[in-house]
Deep mutational scan, measured.
Amino acid sequence: MFYPNSPQTSPQLTQIPYGQQYAMMQRQIQQPYHPFATTEPQARLYPYHYQGPIQQEQGGFITQQSTAASPQYVQMRVTPVDQSIMSGYPNQTANGSSSSSFNYNIHPQQQQQQQQQQQQLRHHAMPVGSVPLQDDRYRKQLIVNYLAPDVTSTDLHELFSRFGELDGARIIYDKQTNMSKGYGFVYFCHAEDAKEAVERMSGYEFHGKWLKVGYSTNPLNIVPSNSSPYVHAGSRGAAG
């Protein structure tokens, strides 16, 4: 039997160049792979992502010199942007860049009308829970959420009447099932009393439920100042 490094198959040491006398086997001759043993700084910083320098080929596509990437890492192929796409944008300079302001050559009167329309939209648009300043009635009506099913309009009136005089209180019921929808409205005579009720009743436990109280901004629920107070009856038909 002959071994790869046996004296019968191995040459004389004098015939082997210096430095390879003890590297006779194939696994010894093959050098191990060192990912950080390279002179390129990109490979030292990113050993798993770097795959060699990027070269520009004919046709405008950018390719990489090395083989496919590892399945664990996804390499994105980048193509140059066609400058003709950006030619339609206004205020574009000769080098292809555009300024931040756009001039669509709008007539001054049209621009003024658009600004007025935007101001009107901001004036009428009102986020949930906010209180408008032009109508004091919005500051007097509250919406009470997360009410228990057994709470009546009379219970709601008695709960909030300790903060001040009320114009009314009612629970909203479903017309088909005649069941409470879980929320109601309270109408105060003074805005200061309503503000105190919002601050003190939010998070209050009532009939096993934690109440959420806020201003009601729905104009359909506003009680006119010259109208008669609501009837605080315990029956659902009268309260709904």
Rank of each mutant, 00 (worst) to 15 (best):
F2T: 01
Y3S: 09
S6Q: 03
Q8M: 09
S10C: 13
P11V: 08
L13W: 15
Q21P: 04
M25H: 13
Q26C: 09
Q26A: 00
R27H: 11
R27N: 15
Q28K: 07
Q31D: 13
P32I: 13
Y33A: 03
Y33H: 14
Y33D: 08
Y33P: 14
Y33G: 14
P35D: 08
F36M: 02
T38R: 12
T38A: 10
T38W: 15
E40R: 09
P41L: 02
Q42I: 10
R44T: 14
L45R: 02
Y46V: 06
H49P: 05
Y50P: 09
Q51L: 06
Q51P: 03
Q55D: 11
Q56Y: 02
Q56A: 15
Q56K: 13
E57M: 00
E57W: 06
Q58E: 07
Q58I: 15
G59H: 14
F61P: 12
I62Q: 01
Q64F: 14
S66D: 05
A68E: 12
A68H: 02
A68D: 13
A69M: 04
A69I: 14
A69K: 11
Q72A: 04
V74I: 12
V74C: 15
Q75C: 07
M76Y: 01
M76F: 07
V78S: 07
V78A: 04
T79P: 01
T79H: 01
T79D: 05
P80F: 15
Q83T: 06
S84I: 11
I85W: 05
I85F: 08
I85Y: 05
I85R: 04
G88I: 09
N95I: 06
G96M: 15
S98E: 13
S99K: 01
S100N: 13
S100G: 05
S100T: 09
S101P: 11
P108L: 09
P108R: 08
Q110L: 07
Q113R: 08
Q113W: 10
Q114C: 02
Q119E: 14
Q119V: 12
L121P: 00
H124G: 07
M126V: 06
V131F: 13
Q134V: 01
D135A: 11
D136R: 03
R137V: 01
K140N: 15
L142Y: 06
I143D: 08
I143A: 07
I143W: 02
V144H: 15
V144T: 05
N145G: 06
Y146N: 05
L147A: 14
L147R: 12
P149I: 00
D150I: 02
V151R: 11
T152R: 10
T152N: 11
S153V: 03
S153E: 08
T154R: 06
D155K: 00
L156D: 06
E158A: 09
E158R: 04
L159R: 08
L159W: 01
L159F: 00
G164N: 04
E165I: 10
E165V: 10
E165M: 03
D167W: 00
A169T: 11
R170Y: 10
R170D: 00
I172D: 10
D174N: 13
K175M: 06
Q176D: 15
M179H: 01
M179E: 14
S180R: 02
G184H: 14
G184S: 15
Y187E: 11
C189V: 13
H190A: 05
A191L: 03
A191H: 12
D193T: 13
A194T: 06
E196Q: 06
A197T: 01
V198T: 03
E199G: 05
R200C: 13
M201K: 00
S202V: 08
G203R: 05
G203D: 05
H207T: 04
W210F: 02
L211H: 08
K212G: 01
V213P: 13
Y215A: 00
S216T: 02
P219R: 01
P219H: 00
L220V: 08
N221R: 10
I222H: 02
V223R: 04
P224T: 14
P224A: 11
N226M: 00
V231M: 00
V231K: 11
H232K: 03
H232V: 06
H232M: 10
G234P: 05
S235F: 11
S235P: 06
G237V: 04
